[in-house]
Design a protein around this nucleic acid. Sequence first.
DNA 1: TCAAAAGTGTTTAGTCTACACCCATGA
DNA 2: TCATGGGTGTAGACTAAACACTTTTGA
Lengths: 242, 242
Amino acid sequence: MTDKLAPKETNPKGEGFIPHLAVDAVIFGFHDNQLKVLLMQYSKTGRYALPGGFIQQTENLDDAAKRVASERTGLTDIFLEQFYVFGDIARHDPAPFSAFMAANGKEPDASHWLLQRFISIGYFALVDFTKVSPTPDKIFDSCDWYDLASLPQLIQDHNAIIHKALETLRAKLDDKLIGFNLLPQHFTMSELQSLYETILDKKLIRPAFQRKMLSLGILDRLAKKFSGGAHKAPYVYRFASK
Amino acid sequence: MTDKLAPKETNPKGEGFIPHLAVDAVIFGFHDNQLKVLLMQYSKTGRYALPGGFIQQTENLDDAAKRVASERTGLTDIFLEQFYVFGDIARHDPAPFSAFMAANGKEPDASHWLLQRFISIGYFALVDFTKVSPTPDKIFDSCDWYDLASLPQLIQDHNAIIHKALETLRAKLDDKLIGFNLLPQHFTMSELQSLYETILDKKLIRPAFQRKMLSLGILDRLAKKFSGGAHKAPYVYRFASK
DNA sequence: TCAAAAGTGTTTAGTCTACACCCATGA
DNA sequence: TCATGGGTGTAGACTAAACACTTTTGA
């Protein structure tokens, strides 16, 4: 899990990596009826960013994305999907990294590879919030969950990247049934509905939702869960692995 | 429309371009009830390839794709969409370019930038077949339409790229109503249905298709077309630009 | 026994399918 | 007038929405 390559800030030519090319990961989690995104922050400059990384010369693109997501979450099996490439000239903004260098008392070298233009390949990941251990990296000294509904200002076009990721998630939700990756292994129907409602940002009709999900034939109904609430205990479901 | 940069084969370091990064365009056309793809061929080695190109250091990614598509078709307004990034190590195959160099009596220099690993961003384009003038480039000396149903063997993973493009086209066809970009400005309902049937590779029910399309409210019905056939002349439609 | 949430039945409305029928046209 | 393909009407099947009802639980 440790980089075999020199740390980014002491590798001024980016040796071993493909230049101008980055991977950014929008890692979604679901907790307390809120969609969350994993963000990095560098305390000295206060700037927020998506977890990201670079592609090693001898590494598959998907593996680079998986590596980035794994290092930030501590998970190994992660649902991960490419969703868009951000390649406008206008997104080039070396200021955050310059500021980082300056905050560390280093002379920002104008030829440093991280100050050049980057084209970034966006991946989104869906993870079980309860299993993630947010882990900072060498540049950003904090890594934590943030509510999607109240995101801070991020560097470069990272807010737009998150927006596009959410759009893709919404479009694929019904189509590919990927939502389950955001829940723990066992869940109730209302938890599932709440997840859908949060992602789609609209209320769904309970009986219709229940029937639709059951009719898909992808849920195993398990023993009842005794919720402690003053009402009928809901069934617990599990995603049927086909 | 001419490259301001040195031709690829005489620019051994790829100066002015972003290294390791390419754009490949799957340009779809529709003619004679067949889906067609624009392919390049280099006669001396007989190898086929997708139209492709590289990204200039100061060029937006989308503009690079647009440039590639425009240079091969002669069109300026092209429906173009990013669909996937192909970044596996396994796709690296310098043989075709080596063979090209050899066929031109040049020593294939092992450090030539085109012999290195490339990550390719796939774009698909939908064009009006009747308006395209297929135009070769400096490496491939032919550029022509090929039936999607009977494609030749292409270099590297280009067959897989086309397959993924077709998959994306199918998925977006109903969703985004992009099919119209493949037809001339004026068309009959049966031409439209034939297009859909060809893309989806299945028969559609005529009355259902007609009603569905009309119910979308995106077609303007124009004067009748007098087909010359021994039957009722069909209406001519135009895509309503909202 | 009551309130609250879970699960299911039922009525209704809307949509899609299948088939039929009529229309316009040139041979 | 006949065959052919284009356009639309309509009955039945299927699906989805809306509402109601029953069940289960802890207070």
